[in-house]
Design a protein around this nucleic acid. Structure first.
Length: 471
RNA sequence: GGCGACGUACCCAAGUGGCUUAAGGGGAAAGUCUGCAAAACUUUUAUUCAUCGGUUCGAAUCCGAUCGUCGCCUCCA
């Protein structure tokens, strides 16, 4: 079955045609590790995870590269201001290298908690400085660069299709309307390939180059590293929707100017997760992290389920209410699946080994249609509620679907074993005794007492279950 | 100022010309179960798709206008 993807280049759905049959080269813009990632960042990483899982589900051998930006990303994309890493260093008193390591570690942990499949390779910008310098040399040789007092710049006027991805109306851009920009730039869309270290200042991260000591501009890392691992032209490149006008536009300019070939066939961009106040932004100071939602009593996968519920190209307004809804639905889903799983173990029949074609096809059709995950979730619920399928068939379908959904439905889900204090257990036992003696008044009192102490009691056929009440 | 996206039930949300007098989930209500609860399960919950016009045999889906929300052109997924 064909996979259909919405290509930002051309703004239309297209049938995915790989460069090499059966293989897919994928590059996704990763985090800048000067701070924690917020849940908005993870919405994009989750979208990319869904995409990759769908490619794998369809039998593709995916080579996936994700960069870790640990240098060169300036406070402003207008090539002004401080390096984000150096700024973080000044704020915390740690070295930039320590900061990068610390936030990288956190990013990896969060990604793991969300069941995001790691890329084939993470590429750190500072590990590939030579490759970046080589690419700048290539551009220099071909006459696309010029030098100013603060760096080596790319002359965008040398390309006749600059801005094709973003459909930029360059005349209409109000560059510098909100910040000062270098007066030495020849065109307002020109950008830095290499920045010189300030004369009187020693940077923690700086390297020698043919043009002088300094560090690479932000955009060049993606061009250089994707080329090294995926080649001059590759299949799919993803990122947040905000990267269309500057970052990805400049990547295309650099790469295509250097190689003379088309850079990427399919560009895909995820929409934002927003708050009441608008878009989530690290520069606003406080922001929601995976850790924040865990502290509030949600599981990381509750957030994954939430993201499955809205198409990736549609903005999603975050609220605790919708996370509650996702949590409730996901928890009911897990319960249903657990019951199906138990039932399938008990009742074997000749249909056990089969994977009902119709349902499987419906699911594949949904996910292959530009990642229609909400529709895929609807198919999943349909399977669960379908009375014509045996438990074994349902189980097989669910296991298959979960290869794309990544909700851990293929695992036995047991509610976390909480440690219940012995005094609580005593009261529980007391209540069981009271119930056996049909002293329901006392039983109800004890239930009330436990509730006041923060524990909820749920009667079962033989005994009862206690749970800590989460706020 | 320029560019772009979006507006579907109480909430989230799919559908983008006939298969749909609109999926799925949350919530709510009723029922089953239970000593009572809770949970679970079953059923019900939009003749209607921001508003007003137009195109069409046929529109939530196409076109135009209006209103509203938001994003980008600073950093940003």
């Amino acid at each position: 079955m064909d996979i259909i993807l919405f290509n930002t280049l051309g703004r239309e759905k297209q049938v995915f045609k790989p460069i090499i049959t059966g293989k897919a080269g994928l590059y996704t813009c990763g985090p800048t590790v000067y701070d924690y990632q917020h849940i908005g960042n993870f919405r994009t990483f989750l979208f990319e995870d869904f995409l990759k899982r769908i490619l794998i589900y369809n039998g593709y051998d995916v080579t996936h590269i994700m960069n870790i930006t640990d240098v060169g990303h300036l406070v402003s994309d207008g090539d002004e201001g401080e390096d984000k890493m150096e700024k973080g260093s000044a704020r915390t008193g740690k070295t930039v290298w320590e900061i990068a390591e610390y936030y990288t570690k956190h990013f990896l942990e969060d990604a793991k908690a969300l069941n995001i499949i790691p890329p084939t390779k993470y590429t750190k910008a500072t590990d590939y400085i030579n490759e970046q310098i080589d690419m700048i040399k290539c551009l220099d040789d071909k006459g696309y660069t010029y030098i100013t007092s603060d760096g080596v710049y790319f002359d965008t006027s040398k390309l006749n299709d600059y801005g094709k991805l973003a459909k930029l109306d360059i005349e209409g851009l109000e560059e510098g309307s909100r910040i000062q920009f270098s007066t030495e730039k020849k065109n307002k869309t020109d950008f830095a390939l290499w920045k010189f270290s300030p004369r009187n200042e020693k940077r923690q991260m700086e390297w020698e180059s043919p043009w002088g000591k300094g560090f690479p501009g932000w955009h060049i890392e993606c061009s250089a590293m994707s080329r090294k691992f995926l080649g001059d032209t590759f299949d799919i490149h993803c990122g947040g929707i905000d990267h269309i006008p500057i970052h990805h536009t400049n990547e295309i300019a650099q790469s295509e100017a250097c190689t003379g070939k088309m850079f990427v066939h399919y560009w895909m961009h995820g929409a934002f997760l927003e708050e009441d106040s608008g878009k989530m932004s690290k520069s606003k100071g406080e922001f929601l992290r995976i850790e924040t939602i865990i502290k509030k009593g949600y599981a990381p996968l509750d957030f994954r389920y939430l993201c499955l519920g809205t198409h990736y190209r549609k903005r999603l307004l975050f609220s605790w209410e919708i996370l509650d809804q996702a949590k409730a639905a996901f928890s009911r889903l897990k319960l249903n699946v657990q019951q199906i799983r138990n039932d399938a173990k008990k009742n074997f029949d000749q249909r056990d080994a089969s994977l009902p074609k119709e349902e499987k096809e419906k699911f594949t059709q949904a996910v292959n249609d530009d990642l229609n995950m909400p529709q895929a979730i609807a198919v999943l619920w349909g399977v669960i509620r379908n009375e014509n399928l045996s438990s074994a068939e349902k189980k097989n379908l669910i296991d298959s679907f979960d290869r794309v959904l990544g909700l851990d439905l293929d695992k036995d889900n047991k509610t976390g074993d909480e440690i219940i204090p012995s005094e609580i257990l005593e009261i529980v036992n007391e209540r069981i005794t009271a119930k056996k003696g049909k002293d329901f008044k006392k039983a109800d009192e004890l239930r009330g007492k436990l509730k006041d102490m923060g524990y909820e009691i749920v009667d079962k056929k033989d005994g009862a279950e206690v749970k800590k009440i989460r706020s």
